[in-house]
Design a protein around this nucleic acid. Structure first.
Length: 638
DNA sequence: GCAGGGAAAC
């Protein structure tokens, strides 16, 4: 097999003329090709690789029978030093590359995100008549799409490589990426022996489709001594990303208790995400300290996860401090910080950062940046700025608005009372409105008392089945507000008929590293008795300060006093009561609610902040409320 | 020459 000289175009000219150092490094003036190969394997700098490359060219070694091996090593050496273009150009300048070089090139392309190129190389290999082997398949599978997976699977079977552990794992992985659990499962089940890696791929597959239980069963079936950090990470992240953040943290603690394998930066990112979701600030801080002292690389992704965690756990100051110390901030880090300011209601800072990001940092905003900035305009009631921002997306930045952006725009206009305009936008937009967008407008109708439009929309939605539990609740609220109890009853029976369950409101509070969870009226907490005593005490005190319960927020068909009682035990009130009895007087409380805080609880929390002199930070589904001395940072506009 | 894991969001 002949090899061509590698063209020098991709290399600086200087490298081609100075090569004496290679001779020195090799110990003789002209080290034999075999020795150059050893040097390449051990090369610790690109410079050395380039010098060896130059020596090969200068000495016409491409004519040498050993050249294919040398060429392959050269390819790998460039790739291992991150010189992907060099290594691929080396391949492209080789005449009649053999299976080894093909496979290496496919692997280089695959592992460096050049998926199309990897696939093209595979096709080129087939058309040149070379028969791929198990190495080739495991390399090409990494970058192949779900559609081409079937075709490659067929090639694999034809060549009898279906049971090779590496190939099978690659197949599980590719099906997992395409969300095809059935095919992944089939390949996995046929493997003669499950390896650690194939099981991990299968766990990832289960987790990706939200089947956390199947993932857990497989994870637990793996021998404990075998589990490495990757398998722990996929399980922790699987929990964190699919609605089980507490389980994610418990698993993380279990890992720490075992002492090995050692957590890495990915473990940190997954666990921090879990903290963000449940507002576990103390746990998040602990992970921050842990990361710093355990030589885990504090890279931009870890920093971003920290910024997100601190923001979502209510400590914007710490988020800002991490952001300021983040090296080489990328767009994701900026987005996280802008979103942090936005959710805390600091619109001026969010918009300032938006400018700085483009000016000082020279980064282009993405569609996600606009979600945050539009949201901040909506929260602050900056209608003109928000509309201008929305228009600039397409006109200035060439970003096509998605449903999320329309959602922000509708909420921006709706909150500002421009209901008709918001309605027009929904009707005119080229994407079909989803239930989130409609709920937002419906919420605005309720806020501004436009019951005619509200009812019209709600009925339209129910007729077309574009609903979620929130739409029904809002519709019922709207009926209740105009005292149309027949309407309320109608909605209730509709919900029963369609078995639509109102998403339960859950509030959490973290006390001494532990997250305590409350649902409305629940008495599961160990200190339940004391909590309810405090709830009643607070009720009396706010009533004597003039509080009148807003019973319109109650959906059930109850007597007025029963409605009041049902408000009294809303999850946020239980969480606040627990916070009051289990922390020092004067210390701030941080409460997290999975839904939006209801207007009655908002009023009550304002009053409690005044009476107790406590700062109460409450995160709801949309944003943060900072209650201080009887008023809220949202300005009662949320 | 080969396999599995991560951050921002209406």
């Amino acid at each position: 097999m002949a090899s061509s000289p590698v063209l020098a175009t991709s290399l600086p000219q200087k490298q081609l003329t100075t090569s004496s150092s290679v001779a020195t490094a090799g110990g003789s003036r002209h080290p034999p090709p075999e020795q150059l190969a050893i040097l390449l394997d051990k090369s610790d700098s690109v410079d050395l690789v380039k010098r060896i490359h130059a020596a090969i060219l200068r000495r016409n070694l491409f004519l040498h029978p050993y050249h294919p091996v040398l060429n392959l090593k050269l390819h790998r050496a460039y790739a291992s030093h991150g010189k992907i273009r060099h290594s691929l150009s080396l391949f492209h300048h080789t005449i009649d590359p053999d299976l080894f070089l093909f496979t290496a090139a496919i692997n280089t392309a695959s592992t460096n995100g050049l998926r199309d190129q990897a696939f093209l190389l595979y096709l080129q290999l087939l058309s040149s008549g070379i028969v791929p082997n198990e190495f080739t398949f495991s390399s090409v599978l990494k970058s192949c799409s779900a559609q081409s997976a079937k075709a490659i699977h067929t090639h694999v079977l034809k060549l009898g490589l279906g049971l090779d552990p590496y190939v099978a794992t690659g197949l599980v992985d590719v099906y997992a990426r395409g969300g095809d659990v059935v095919s992944a499962q089939k390949v996995f089940d046929r493997m003669p022996e499950r390896s650690l890696v194939s099981s991990t791929a299968m766990i990832t597959c289960y987790a990706k489709q939200g089947n956390v239980e199947a993932a857990r069963v497989l994870f637990e079936s793996m021998p404990e001594t075998e589990r490495d950090i990757v398998s722990w990470n996929v399980m922790i992240d699987g929990y964190a990303q699919h609605g089980f953040p507490s389980d994610a943290l418990m698993l993380f603690q279990k890992l720490l208790a075992k002492g090995k394998p050692k957590p890495d930066e990915i473990t940190a990112v997954a666990s921090l995400s879990a903290c963000s979701q449940i507002g576990a600030l103390e746990s998040g801080r602990w992970i921050h300290v842990f990361v710093k002292k355990s030589r885990i690389s504090v890279n931009v992704k870890v920093c971003t996860a920290l910024i997100d965690m601190y923001s979502k756990c209510g400590s914007l100051e710490e988020a800002v401090s991490v952001f300021n110390d983040t090296p080489r901030k990328d767009i994701v880090a900026w987005n996280a910080m802008i979103a942090g300011y936005a959710m805390h209601g600091y619109s001026q800072d969010a918009l300032r950062l938006f400018d700085e990001m483009q000016g000082k940092a020279g980064l282009q905003p993405t569609d996600i940046t606009f979600i945050a900035t539009l949201q901040t305009c909506a929260h602050a009631g900056l209608v003109k700025e928000g509309v201008r921002m929305f228009e600039s997306m397409g006109q200035v930045y060439g970003i096509k608005p998605k449903i999320e952006h329309y959602g922000c725009l509708v909420s921006l206009l709706g909150r500002a009372g421009r209901l008709k305009q918001a309605y027009e936008i929904i009707k005119k937009m080229e994407i079909e409105a989803d239930s989130v967008v409609w709920s937002s407008l419906l919420g605005s109708c309720k806020l501004h008392g436009d019951f005619v439009l509200g009812k019209e929309i709600a009925e339209y939605l129910i007729e077309r089945n574009i609903t979620n539990s929130g739409t029904y609740v809002l519709l019922s609220n709207i009926y209740a507000l105009v005292s149309d109890y027949e309407g309320v009853a109608k909605v209730r029976s509709l919900m029963k008929e369609k078995t639509i369950v109102k998403e339960p409101g859950i509030s959490t509070i973290e006390i001494d590293d532990r997250v305590h969870e409350f649902r409305a009226g629940d008495r599961n907490h160990l200190e339940s008795k004391e909590i309810y005593t405090m709830v009643r005490k607070m009720s009396e005190r706010i009533k004597s300060s003039g509080y009148v319960p807003d019973t319109n927020a109650v959906l059930q068909d109850l007597e007025e006093t029963e409605k009041e009682q049902s408000l009294e035990v809303h999850s946020e009130r239980l969480a606040i009561a627990y916070g009051l009895i289990s922390t020092k007087p004067g210390s701030p409380l941080r409460i997290f609610k999975n839904l939006r805080v209801c207007s009655d609880c908002h009023t009550v929390t304002k009053m409690i902040s005044k009476i107790t002199g406590r700062k109460i930070v409450m995160r709801d589904r949309n944003r943060f409320h900072h209650f201080v001395d009887g008023s809220c940072s949202c300005g009662d506009f949320w």
